[in-house]
């Protein structure tokens, strides 16, 4: 019954979670929030993570009512993500692993999302839509790899939403995506935007530059409201995501979908995906913000699977990497 602690901090969230055989014992998290109109920069984000990580570690242990002696394995995010924040978190993980004398496991961030989603929803072998600030991928498992069937050919969907939020100076608290979601609910008029699907791939950069260009003009001339723009942007982006997911399902003959990653807690996206699933007799699985958004438990869960199947990371291999594709990892814990 190994107890695994997971450290995550690849972007502006930092989280530490403790799991015992699929049971989440604790999962505290902090977010580095920037002023409206501003994104988060690597060095400042790393500074934020450094300033809270030790408190967060204490909190994770206290909430789980465990001490260092109870931990069997330390998992940390190896990548992908921002260099400086990744290094900060890996350093602490490496240190405690040595202090406590337990093995270390370096985890692919995307695999963390996938395994957490599978744990929480009990989806068996779903087509996966992984949508976050840095990633947009449609994934299906076969022969020991999470294989990428479709992805963005330029920017990620979350990045597109975040950058649009900056144009309109929408608050980053708790997250720009959530505030867009709330505003979109009040939008009524559908503004036509570019729509680019290529097979199972999508492109968002054209939409972003179109809306960046048009937004302020349309608002100034009262052609539409900011809420209408949020609504139209969501409707367009999410239609593209649902479409490529459906394409992958048809191609793979799949009857299950699991949405993971930060954008995955958007209820409108979940609703649209649900309607698509109904139309093809498939089943939708999704999780809420506790597990969709970057957190420590997801790293612990993927680490637990890796540890259980005999994977550990030697100290000399415990580096981080900014680029780390989902399909690079050999999935030793599934048939």
């Amino acid at each position: 019954m190994p107890v695994v602690i997971g450290f995550e901090g690849s972007a502006n969230k930092i989280g530490i979670g403790i799991l015992r055989d699929g049971e989440v014992l604790s999962n505290p998290r902090r977010t580095y929030i920037t002023p409206p109109g501003q994104g988060f920069l690597p060095s400042e984000t790393a500074r934020h993570h450094r300033s809270v990580i030790l408190c967060l570690l204490q909190e994770a242990l206290d909430q789980a009512a465990l001490g260092p002696a109870d931990i069997d394995c330390v998992a940390y995010t190896k990548g992908p993500g921002m260099g400086a924040p990744l290094v900060t978190v890996a350093l602490v993980a490496r240190t405690v692993a040595q202090l406590w004398g337990v093995p270390l496991v370096g985890v692919n961030h995307c695999i963390g999302h996938i395994e957490m989603g599978r744990l929480i929803t009990r989806a068996h072998n779903p087509t996966l839509l992984y949508v976050s600030g840095g990633n947009t991928q449609v994934i299906s498992y076969s022969e020991r790899r999470y294989r990428i069937f479709g992805e963005t050919i330029d920017i990620a969907v979350g990045n597109c939403l975040d950058r649009f939020a900056r144009v309109l100076k929408i608050s980053n608290d708790p997250s720009p995506g959530y505030n867009i979601e709330l505003m979109a609910r009040r939008g009524t008029q559908y503004v036509e935007l570019p729509y680019t699907v290529k097979g199972m791939d999508v492109s968002f950069s054209g939409i972003l530059s179109f809306i960046e260009e048009a937004a302020n003009k349309m608002l100034a001339s009262s052609q539409c409201t900011a809420e209408d723009l949020c609504f139209s942007l969501q409707e367009t982006l999410f239609s593209m995501l649902v479409e490529i997911t459906e394409r992958a399902m048809a191609h793979c003959g799949s009857k299950e979908v699991l949405i993971v990653g930060g954008v995955g807690c958007n209820l409108r996206l979940q609703e649209m995906m649900g309607v698509m699933c109904e139309e093809r007799g498939a089943k939708l699985f999704a999780t809420d913000e506790r597990f969709c958004i970057d957190n420590g438990a997801m790293i612990a869960q993927a680490g637990w699977e890796m540890f259980r199947s005999g994977q550990v990371t030697k100290l000399k291999d415990s580096w981080i990497t900014q680029r780390y594709r989902t399909d690079e990892v050999e999935v030793t814990w599934r048939d």
């Binding site: 990428i148 069937f149 699907v197 290529k198 097979g199 399909d327």
Partner: peptide, 29 residues
């Protein structure tokens, strides 16, 4: 349904790229 008429090498290159990814992920090794 997603086809278009284009003489641009970029569009044809993306066409092959889309096929490559679909091909290799559908048919491992």
């Amino acid at each position: 349904g997603l086809s278009s008429v284009s003489a641009l090498p970029e569009d044809k290159g993306v066409d092959l790229y889309v096929l490559e990814k679909a091909f290799l992920s559908t048919h491992p090794n």
